[in-house]
Design a protein around this nucleic acid. Sequence first.
RNA 1: GGUCGGUUCGUCUAGGGGUUAGGACGUAUCCCUUUCACGGAUAAAACACGGGUUCGAUUCCCGUACCGACUACCA
Length: 512
Amino acid sequence: MNKEVRVRFAPSPTGALHIGGVRTALYNYLFAKKMGGKFLLRIEDTDQTRFVPGAEDYIKESLEWLGISPVESPWNPGGCGPYRQSERKPMYMQYALDLVEKGHAYYAFDTSEELEAMRERLTAARVVQPQYNSITRTQMKNSLTLTAEEVKARHASGEPYVIRIKIPRNEEVRLNDMIRGWVMVNSSTLDDKVLMKSDGMPTYHLANIVDDHLMNITHVIRGEEWLPSAPLHVLLYRYFGWADSMPQFAHLPLLLKPDGNGKLSKRDGDKLGFPVFPLNWTDPFTGEKSSGFREQGYLPDAFLNFLAFLGWNPGDERELFTIEELVEAFSVERIGKSGTKFDIAKAKWYNEQYLKVKPIDELAAFFIADANAEGFEVPADKTEAIVNLVKGRVTFPADLWKESKFIVSAPTEFDQEIASKKWNADAVKVLGAYAVTLEGFSGPFDAGTAKALLESTAETEGIKLGKVMQAVRLAVTGSGAGPDLMEVFAILGTMEVAKRIRFALSTLTVVA
RNA sequence: GGUCGGUUCGUCUAGGGGUUAGGACGUAUCCCUUUCACGGAUAAAACACGGGUUCGAUUCCCGUACCGACUACCA
């Protein structure tokens, strides 16, 4: 009754982990933490043909990036190992045989050609569900139709076989999903799923039940795509005699494409205009590259917060949650039932919120790194002022440098559109005079001083400052928009501002 | 096609037998700002449809429509 909560995230290493999987991992993590339980990870690599090198490391790194690492995993084993199904291979057959013995499973020798022929035959006969089931199995080559001697002979000759579950003909199977409530299904709609493949590996269905049981999993939180096979899993627990300790199920709503057509899939890559993976990924076979949220500049906390809200909400109007607050607020009951469209605009908003409250030295580090990468040295005494000036204008850390590069690197070109509209005789007059003023000025030069000086210069020239302000900005920054100009002047200093003005004056020509 | 699941502003959602149906993103307008952005304010914007049940349904029930998942010796 008071069993420790143990949940697992069970990805298969068939490529990059996609964000739907990341959210599943997150919900498992939050639930485990909330319940004071354990979050573990199991690699489901029973399909050797789909193995992709690097995928497992990718999963590990993704979870580490987000700070939701499992406490038991292949790379950090606990007491229920191994944590890779391929390494558990020897364990499964005995369970399958147990089912055969109990009459809940049987050997089947049909070749894939025969299976295909069966499906074609049934389809041609307009059978609604062409599947291997209580009716069709009587026509196939299996230990239910063959004599014991024949089965023995086939085994002796080394003929390949699979073990299938024997689904009862007509039986109500029900399960109480934590998110969806009671789900009922008649066994007549289920088929005799393969439990053991001919290569000696279990299928997902067998392996996940055996492993969840052996690993003392108490709650299975997984995607909704598993809902249709959940009744099969219930039957397996029952046939194994594990019904009493069967985990509770929670089937998560799917993450949908923004256009509303279908679930988000790995194949969407960057086609939708945003990444579907947490980290950059290069397919080792095709060389195809896909971008990740991390490399695009999403902060792990912001991304986590965003992801948590895709299908779950705390029930109040708070939006910004640290991981600890998410744990505290989380409950499976508050997970929605319907599919969730992925909204990248919201993800950006979260990133902006987190960026805004980041300590200045962390932001400065981003800024300096980007500047250095482009070969620029930023005076140490100026970084803080620059970062403070632009931090309200950025979505990604990289924007810090993009937005302020003009401060470190004087413009060599000017926005032509602004120039043609605002570069006039009045502007030239004021700027010329202002340059002279600055060159002759000594003393503390801050934004207020810069402004006072500029105002008095304009007044002396008899020109309204408002009319030439854009030109002043253009001269010093090269563009028509940007952060507070006077603050920029203060950071630049009198001589640099004057120098830039003189360059603009000598470069731009007044068009009548 | 069959089985299962779902359906509140464009999007994420709150709510739930009687509400001006609330918030957030996005959008628009205004304020702030001698620019752009930030910030502040305001606005437009939703209970899929049809039947019940009920004094009353967006909320409960049924059906329809639509959307989605699943339907492999893949997970």
